[in-house]
């Protein structure tokens, strides 16, 4: 009985995290498509991507329990968090030094 409730809670949590992950992923995609310039697009995709992969991987970890799979998922998570933030950083820095100007406001002729 107890175990069952625990299992149910796990399932509910998994569903919540998966939904959140999907939502973040889709909103990141929309942001990438809709936002006006390079840096805002980076911002949209960078933040939502990290959060989305975290949410989805965490949900999967909840489902897999205390197994080898969870450990592997954990490593993937760490790997993703570090590499995707690094990639975002490198892209933004390169763009800045290559002369991409952030869009600041209406008066900034763009």
């Amino acid at each position: 009985m107890d175990l069952n409730i625990f299992g149910n809670i796990l399932d509910i949590l998994t569903a919540l995290f998966l939904t959140a992950g999907c939502f973040l992923g889709i909103s990141g995609g929309i942001g990438l498509y809709r936002l006006p310039d390079f840096f805002t697009r980076q911002h949209a995709s960078g933040i939502t991507d990290s959060a989305c992969s975290f949410a989805i991987l965490f949900a999967l970890m909840l489902q897999s329990g205390f197994t080898m799979v969870t450990i592997k998922l954990f490593f993937i998570l760490i790997f993703l968090i570090i590499t995707s933030t690094t990639a975002t950083h490198a892209l933004a820095k390169t763009a800045l030094f290559k002369g991409q100007k952030p869009l600041l406001g209406r008066e900034d002729n763009h």
């Binding site: 390169t94 800045l96 030094f97 290559k98 002369g99 991409q100 100007k101």
Partner: peptide, 25 residues
């Protein structure tokens, strides 16, 4: 070396056209 950004503004506007940006990347 990286050039200061204001000097490269005009370049950046063309860069998507001729794709030079990539080679530097």
């Amino acid at each position: 070396l990286y050039q200061p950004m204001d000097k490269k503004t005009s370049y950046a506007e063309n860069s998507t056209e001729d794709g030079d940006e990539f080679e530097d990347n």
